[in-house]
Simulated assay, not measured.
Amino acid sequence: MLNIGDYVLSKKTGHIGKVIGYGHEIIGNTYTSTLKVLVDHTPDFSKKGLVEEDVYSAWTAWQEANNSQAMS
């Protein structure tokens, strides 16, 4: 379970950010949970501060040890 304030990694884009909220979308007649993420780091160092909303399953927890290395 990902909580508000957790750092997460997008499996699709490689973006790293902090969970700032939750949402829901209807995708293919299915009510799907989403995460709202404030992006801190992208692979090409662009789009910092972007808020992304994507299905919950597209994100995974980002480990604190990795987080400190990636952000420096």
Rank of each mutant, 00 (worst) to 15 (best):
G14E: 08
V8D: 01
N29Y: 03
G17A: 11
L9P: 02
E25K: 14
G49K: 05
V19C: 04
Q63Y: 06
T60V: 14
H24Y: 15
S10T: 06
G17S: 06
W59C: 01
K47V: 12
S57R: 11
D44L: 11
P43T: 13
D44V: 08
L2V: 12
I26T: 10
Q69Y: 14
K36L: 11
Q63P: 09
S57N: 12
V51S: 00
K36H: 04
L9H: 12
V19K: 05
E52G: 07
A61Y: 10
K48F: 11
L50F: 10
S33P: 14
L35Y: 03
H41F: 13
K12Q: 09
K47S: 15
W62M: 14
A65F: 07
N66P: 00
K18D: 05
G49R: 06
Y56P: 00
L50R: 14
H24W: 12
N3G: 08
W62S: 00
K12C: 11
V55G: 04
T30I: 10
S10A: 07
E53F: 02
L50T: 14
V8Q: 06
V19Y: 08
L38D: 09
G28S: 02
E53H: 03
Y56R: 07
H41C: 12
M71T: 12
A58Y: 13
Y31R: 14
N29M: 01
L38Q: 08
G49N: 10
L2Y: 07
K48G: 08
I26W: 04
N67D: 13
S72E: 13
L38P: 06
S33R: 15
F45E: 15
I27G: 01
G49A: 11
P43N: 10
G17R: 05
V8I: 02
E52Y: 10
G17L: 07
N66H: 01
E25N: 05
V51C: 09
Y31P: 00
K36M: 01
A65Q: 10
T42Y: 02
S33E: 15
S46I: 13
Q63F: 08
K12T: 15
Y7P: 02
G28C: 02
V37H: 08
H15M: 13
L9N: 11
M1Q: 07
S72K: 15
V8K: 03
K36A: 05
I4H: 03
D6R: 04
N29R: 09
G17Q: 08
V37C: 05
L35A: 04
M71Y: 10
L2D: 02
G23N: 07
L38K: 13
I27S: 03
